[in-house]
Amino acid sequence: MINLIADLGSGLLGKLVRIGQALLMLLQATIVRPKASSFSRLIQQLYVVGVQSLIIILVSALFIGMVLGLQGYTLLAAYGTEQAVGQMVALTLVRELSPVVAALLFAGRAGSALTAEIGLMKATEQLASLEMFGVDPLHRIVAPRFWAGIISLPLLVAIFSLVGIYGGHLVAVDWLGVYSGSYWGNMQQAVDFNGDVLNGMVKALVFAFLISWTAVYQGYTCVPTSQGISAATTRTVVYSSLAILGFDFILTALMFGGTV
């Protein structure tokens, strides 16, 4: 029993130490005066991390919006309130589904790729070689990728919401015959900018931080072999997915918990 507690304690301590190290790495990478060339590296990473994740975000958003439209319509029609489907689709997306689903997709699409890329750079000694040229790989490699993640995900979440709402419109209005005016009108009335849109964006920003941080840390500290890189990539997806879901609950409780 004592042993069990001791093991748990040392395991927990190890985790805390790891988190501390990861935080330190992040500070070293990001607290630095940017150079002119850092900007072009950031643009390049925005393309790789953000633009290349666009397709999966667009397609998923469209389908999820369509499913919401269909489910919402069936549910609401039972009470004769199907005209409120626009409001339901929009609120579900903006408050909850867009940040969470986009973040999960982003972790799988971009987070894993970041980890694998940085890990491979480590395994092929590119990071060591930068260091020998007097260039800090934390500034050159880690920082632009981290910032690109932070900037990309909130934008992708916004796009997710817009496309999802359009998908809901396709099903509810164009297919099932809800009056277009009430789809948009109800939505406009029900969705509050500060309470819903902004809170959704805060979630997106928190998730972006969690994913980017996990991904660059796992890549940078991976064991530089093929098994090591594959294990680190898996950890990125698992850890960031769990972190997204856990933090989503906490944030939802904080944001919407008191206002029923």
Partner: peptide, 19 residues
């Protein structure tokens, strides 16, 4: 350290070219 490193070159095992 960087000044010293500028006086030495390293050929890494894997070549380590920037891909």
């Amino acid at each position: 350290l960087n000044q010293i490193r500028a006086r030495m070159g390293v050929l890494f095992q894997s070549g380590a070219l920037f891909t």
